[in-house]
């Protein structure tokens, strides 16, 4: 999941960048509201991690601004001020969750996954589709009961596809979710990941819509397989 992290403390921002990446996210880190606005103008993020006290203003201002513009990205506030009244003010301003500093990386990752899940309209943590179970928390996937051995990027591509089964994702959408700023994207990287996934899930599991993108093939289009689970 592509994340925008707005945090001005250099050491914490760096830790979030590396730590969230290790937890399977694709974070972009900025230190000011101005940079955050610029990043949000060009990229669609799965969630935003927003510090409250920033050098050029309050995170609450950005939060209110985004909600006014009708943007619905899940937003998790990070702040040193975690009194009840501060939490209420943050949530009432349109935040989805709240975490007081200092916090645990695993908790932050779990909360972000929960936010993403709710944003996708799901309640269960494990996504199951056409015999494939994907656990974003444990970063594990099983297919017909056996563990799939997936690389980090392959898992991310698969997760992007199963989050809304049936939805078509353009190659550029997948790239955007997988690569943060400044990361070199090889032109055929996504094709290579799809190829590897097909070799593990069977040829027909992921469908290519030429010129449009990729999607999980709907179950009625899979006549050769018995379907045991649905979304």
């Amino acid at each position: 999941m592509r994340l925008l992290v707005v945090e001005d403390d250099e050491v914490l921002a760096d830790g979030l960048q590396v730590g969230l990446r290790m937890a399977g996210f694709t974070p972009d880190t900025v230190g000011t509201l101005e940079d955050a606005r610029a990043a949000l103008a060009g990229t669609e993020y799965g969630a935003i991690v927003l510090d409250l006290m920033l050098p050029d203003g309050s995170g609450l201002d950005l939060l209110a601004e985004l909600r006014r513009e009708g943007r619905r990205e899940p937003i998790l506030l990070l702040t040193a001020r975690d009194g009840v009244s501060d939490r209420i003010a943050g949530l009432d301003a349109g935040a989805d969750d709240y975490l007081g500093k200092p916090f645990d990386l695993d908790e932050l990752a779990a909360r972000l996954r929960a936010l993403a899940r709710r944003a996708e309209g799901r309640a269960e943590a494990v996504i199951t589709v056409n015999g494939l179970s994907v656990d974003p928390g444990a970063r594990r996937a099983t297919f017909d009961g056996r563990d799939l051995n997936l690389s980090r990027r392959e898992f991310s591509v698969l997760l992007a596809l199963v989050e809304r089964p049936g939805r078509v994702l353009a190659k550029s959408d997948i790239e955007e979710r997988l690569y943060g700023w400044g990361e070199e994207i090889e032109s055929n990287a996504i094709e290579v990941h799809i190829h590897h996934l097909r070799s593990k899930l069977g040829r027909d599991f992921i469908e290519t819509l030429r010129g449009i993108g990729y999607r999980i093939r709907p179950k009625e289009a899979l006549p050769s397989r018995s379907v045991s689970a649905s979304s």
Binding site: D9, V11, L12, G19, L105
Partner: peptide, 15 residues
């Protein structure tokens, strides 16, 4: 204010 550097330290220690 001291909580922010603490959060950074905790994060980096975790990493």
């Amino acid at each position: 204010e001291l909580k922010t550097p603490l959060a950074g330290l905790k994060m980096q220690a975790h990493v």
